[in-house]
Design a protein around this nucleic acid. Structure first.
Lengths: 222, 222
DNA sequence: GATATTATCGAACGCTTGTTCGAAGTTCGA
DNA sequence: TCGAACTTCGAACAAGCGTTCGATAATATC
C-alpha cells in the first residue's frame, strides 16, 4: 500500500495512531488522557474526535491495524511452504521481526488486550484465536511427524507465545542481540526443546541464519 | 508464619490485599476504584485508608508481599542443592507452583509492573533484578558446564521468564494440565532446548515426576 | 470566485476519581 | 468501670476525565 494512494485523512489517521501507540506503550492506556494525545499530535482535544469516536475505538484501531498486518504478513510469507517445521520457523521470524520493528503497537496489542470490551474485543480476539489455532495446528502436525509424547500442545503453544510476546518487557534494540539473532535463539530454544535437538537441526536449522524478510516496513512506518 | 500470631490488623490487611488483588487481576489496576474495593471488602471508602495510605501503596503492598514470598520460598528450596541444573528445575517448579496457586497476585505483579513509580518501583525492581540475576547466573553456569555456544544468555533468561509469566494470559486450572504437568512441560521445553535433550535427561529429568513442594500455601491463603 | 465538503477548534458539561477530616464507635488492659 | 488506643465511617472537596456542540477555518469542486 503505497503512501501516495493514502488520502490526507488516512495519512493523518495513521499519524494519530502511531503517536497514540507510543504514548500508550509508555504510560499505559488508562493513564493516558486524550489531552496527552492532543499535546503530542499538536491537535486540539475535540479535533481528535474527527478521527475516532471514542478512546476505546482508538485503542481498537491500533490493535486491529497492528495485528492485521502481522497476520497478513505471516500468511503471505507462508504461502507455498509445506514443511510444518519450516512454516513454524517463518512464523516465529515474522512475529519477532514485526514485534521489534513495531514495539509500541505490539506492546499495546499484548499489554492492553483487556482494555477493550464488547464488539471491539470480540473482533480482535477472533483474529487472535485464528492465529493461535494456526500455530497450535502446526505444533500438532510436528508432534505427530516426530512422534513427540508427553508434551501438552496447549502448553507448548503458549510457551512459544510467552517467549515471543514477553520481549516488550526486556528487549532493548540498542543493547541486545539484533532481530535475526533473537529469532535464531528463540527458535532454537523452543524448537529443539519441543522436538529434540537432533530433529531440530534436521528440520533446517542452518537455513535460519539468513533472514527471509527483505523489509521491515509496515503501515506504521510511513 | 502461623495465622494465630497475626494480629487482627494483620489479618484484615491480608484480607484487603487478597480481595484487592482479585479485583485488580480481573479489571486491571487503573480501572479499579477504591470504591470497588470498599464494596468487595464491605468496608467504607475512608476506612480502607487505615490499612494503606494511597492506592499506589496498596498495589505496592500486594506486589511486595507476593514477590517476597516467591523469592523466600525459592531460596529455602534451593539451599543445599549444588547442581545448577537441579537448582534451575527447582526454581521453575517453585515459580510456576506459586504462580498457579496465587494467580491473582502474580498477575498483578506481572501485569501492573509499571503501574507503580518512585520508591515503590525501585524497591520491587531491585528484588526482581536479584531474582533475574540469580537465574541468569544459573544459566551461565549451565552453559559453561555444557559448553553451549550460540545462545545469548539474556535471551534465554527472558525466554524462560516469558514462558512462565505469560501463563496468566491462558492457563485455566480447571481445563489445563495441572501444576506438576505444567512444570514438567515447561522445564522440558526450555531445558532440552537450552542444553540439548540428551544432556537435559542426564540432568535429572526423571526426578521431575514427583513434586518437591509439599505445600502450596502462602500468606495469601489464610 | 461561489459553494459544498472536509477538517479543526474553544468552551463547557457531567461524572468519577483519590484523598481528607473530624467525629463516632469499638476493643481491651489497668 | 474508666480511659486510652485502635478502628471505622459519612460527607465533602478539588482535580481530572471522556465527550459534545456549535461555530469557524481550510480545502476541493464546479
Amino acid at each position: 500500500m503505497p503512501v501516495e494512494s493514502q488520502s490526507r485523512y488516512d495519512q493523518k489517521l495513521v499519524h494519530v495512531l502511531k503517536t497514540s501507540a507510543a504514548i500508550f506503550a509508555e504510560k499505559g492506556y488508562h493513564s493516558t488522557s486524550i489531552r496527552d494525545i492532543a499535546r503530542a499530535t499538536k491537535m486540539s482535544l475535540s479535533g481528535l474526535y474527527y478521527y475516532f469516536s471514542s478512546k476505546e475505538e482508538l485503542l481498537f484501531l491500533i490493535q486491529d491495524y497492528c495485528f492485521g498486518t502481522v497476520v497478513d504478513d505471516c500468511r503471505r510469507l507462508l504461502t507455498g511452504v509445506d514443511d510444518p517445521v519450516r512454516r513454524l520457523r517463518l512464523m516465529i521470524e515474522n512475529h519477532l521481526n514485526y514485534f521489534v520493528n513495531n514495539m509500541n503497537e505490539m506492546k499495546v496489542l499484548s499489554h492492553e488486550a483487556n482494555s477493550i470490551s464488547g464488539d471491539f474485543l470480540k473482533k480482535v480476539n477472533s483474529k487472535k484465536r485464528q492465529y493461535v489455532d494456526m500455530v497450535m495446528g502446526l505444533l500438532e502436525e510436528i508432534a505427530r511427524n516426530h512422534r513427540i509424547e508427553g508434551i501438552d500442545i496447549r502448553v507448548a503453544t503458549f510457551s512459544l507465545f510467552g517467549m515471543m510476546n514477553w520481549i516488550y518487557n526486556w528487549y532493548n534494540p540498542r543493547k541486545d542481540v539484533d532481530v535475526t539473532g533473537l529469532s535464531q535463539n528463540i527458535t532454537r530454544i523452543f524448537l529443539s526443546g519441543f522436538i529434540g535437538d537432533k530433529a531440530a537441526k534436521a528440520g533446517g536449522l542452518e537455513t535460519g541464519r539468513e533472514s527471509h524478510l527483505d523489509r521491515s516496513v509496515s503501515i506504521w512506518q510511513q
